[in-house]
Design a binder for these strands. Structure first.
Ligand SMILES: [Zn+2]
Ligand SMILES: [Zn+2]
Ligand SMILES: [Zn+2]
Ligand SMILES: [Zn+2]
Lengths: 132, 132
DNA sequence: ATTGCACACGTTATAGCATAACGCAATTGA
DNA sequence: TCAATTGCGTTATGCTATAACGTGTGCAAT
């Protein structure tokens, strides 16, 4: 899927996420955009829905937050499963792909005749700096 | 860690989860226990906190729900990372462990000097029955 | 040109998930 | 006995997400 031209709200939300140091909750994004006319959560959630669809933003299920894709330009949807390491102290997120992990997980679910749609891999812990 | 004797509330919550067909939200558990005197969400969340600590219940981050461990008797914490396949149609959950997946993920984070604490792997999709 | 449709947007209200803060009672162990 | 710990009950609050309604705009088919 190619990323279409973003609408005004989508651009605003994406810019906030791109400039952020780490993942943001929808309500944090809302607060950062009040000066730009945002008044309600739905304005954020509707933009996020599209950005997720385009693959330029990821949702971190374990912390109810959103982060800009770390691979600008590429289409993250084509990399297979995306995994995240999330520092619980500073919020920094590392994003990576591992085909062997994909392969093992998909082999297992196929063996169960399970049809996968969306996979979440999130490792919470401490980044190098915060663990020191 | 060995599982201590459960308190009354912990037993009630655990029994509800064990008898359930699939994962339940905390508020669903609350509703099922109103006849037993439960009145407030905290009664459920406090019991869940302990059950998670003992490893007899798992939290499914992607659907804000809780499920009894599929490996009664064993201590699930000792199996390394636990992965779940969650049917989005019927709610059925399959739980499994894969040491190779653990190994790859842990090797990657070690390479980043990241110190992992808790890992979530959740595959949402359709089970064999629902995909037919 | 008019109609119909798709889509983004704005607003209000509501639903669903989780914890803070207080106090009380029972247990334990010094 | 006294202090510390743990579980429990209650009230209130905060955070996350969506339902339902209406508006306006652009565009294609008639
Ligand atoms: Zn990405
Ligand atoms: Zn950190
Ligand atoms: Zn388990
Ligand atoms: Zn199913």
């Amino acid at each position: 899927m190619t990323t279409p031209q973003l609408t005004k709200n989508q651009s605003l939300v994406f810019d906030v996420l791109e400039k952020a140091e780490g993942p943001l909750s929808a309500y944090t994004i809302l607060d950062k955009l009040r000066d730009h006319g945002f008044r309600a959560p739905l304005q954020v959630y509707r933009a996020l829905e599209k950005l997720l669809e385009y693959g330029v933003v990821h949702r971190l299920e374990s912390i109810n937050s959103f982060v800009a894709c770390a691979h600008p330009g590429e289409n993250c949807h084509s990399h297979g499963i995306v995994a995240f390491a999330i520092c619980e102290s500073c919020g920094q997120v590392m994003e990576f792909h591992d085909h062997e992990v994909d392969h093992r997980l998909m082999a297992w679910v196929r063996g169960q005749k399970f049809k996968p749609e969306k996979t979440t891999i999130e490792i919470r812990g401490l980044c190098e700096t915060c663990a020191a």
